[in-house]
């Protein structure tokens, strides 16, 4: 009974998520305070995760929510909260240079759209594998020589993340020999001067 609805609902949901992501993107562009921007960005990410699930990659959608919206954006919001003086009142939001700069991305988007519009009519392959956990893991850790070799990339990414963590700790420390970074740097500054 409900399978016939799926086609209709699929495009309806896609339109909904697409509109939501675009609106949130616009909100990010126009937001006064970075924390507004962060919340709009989370909106973009959640809408995109819905689109991923619609496009047959539910695992990627979940990872998008878990890592992007749950961890990375949490970090951003946390830092904005800690600095707590990030309000955008000293700078004009759009100046002459930025208006000129905005032409390039618009031109780029137009070019992409044009290319796509005049490309051959492509369709989604009905035999495409649904990105559930098991096939994703099988492809990721496919150790055969003929395989895509993603496992190497996986290990490299692990090392990269470790390096990033170490680098962040080093950067956030005030001096290299200081015992630990203070929790609120802004207040620390006032105490010093």
């Amino acid at each position: 009974m409900f399978h016939s609805l799926d086609h209709l609902l699929g495009s309806a949901y896609f339109t909904l998520f697409a509109l939501a992501s675009l609106l949130c993107g616009g909100g990010l562009l126009l937001s006064k305070h970075p924390i507004n921007g962060a919340i709009y960005l989370i909106g973009v990410m959640l809408s995109l995760s819905g689109i991923y699930a619609l496009l047959g990659s539910p695992f990627l959608g979940v990872i998008q929510v878990l890592v992007y919206a749950g961890a990375i954006m949490m970090l951003v919001v946390f830092v904005i909260m800690v600095l707590n003086q990030a309000r955008d009142h000293r700078v004009p939001r759009f100046d002459g240079f930025s208006i000129v700069g905005a032409i390039f991305p618009i031109a780029l988007a137009a070019m992409v759209v044009k290319t796509l519009a005049f490309a051959d009519a492509s369709t989604i392959d009905p035999a495409a594998v649904r990105g559930e956990i098991a096939p994703v893991a099988a492809t990721m850790f496919d150790l055969t020589p003929a395989g895509p070799g993603y496992y190497l990339l996986f290990e490299l990414i692990g090392v990269l993340l470790l390096v990033a963590v170490v680098a962040a700790v080093m950067l956030a420390k005030r001096h290299l020999d200081s015992p630990a970074a203070p929790a609120a740097p802004a207040e620390g500054d006032h105490a010093q001067h």
């Binding site: 695992f59 929510v65 878990l66 919206a69 949490m74 946390f78």
Partner: peptide, 19 residues
């Protein structure tokens, strides 16, 4: 198939309420 991951994802979103 990723029920537990989705649960953790929702759990990580609930932090935003506090923040």
């Amino acid at each position: 198939s990723s029920g537990l991951l989705l649960l953790f994802a929702l759990g990580s979103l609930s932090v935003y309420g506090v923040v």
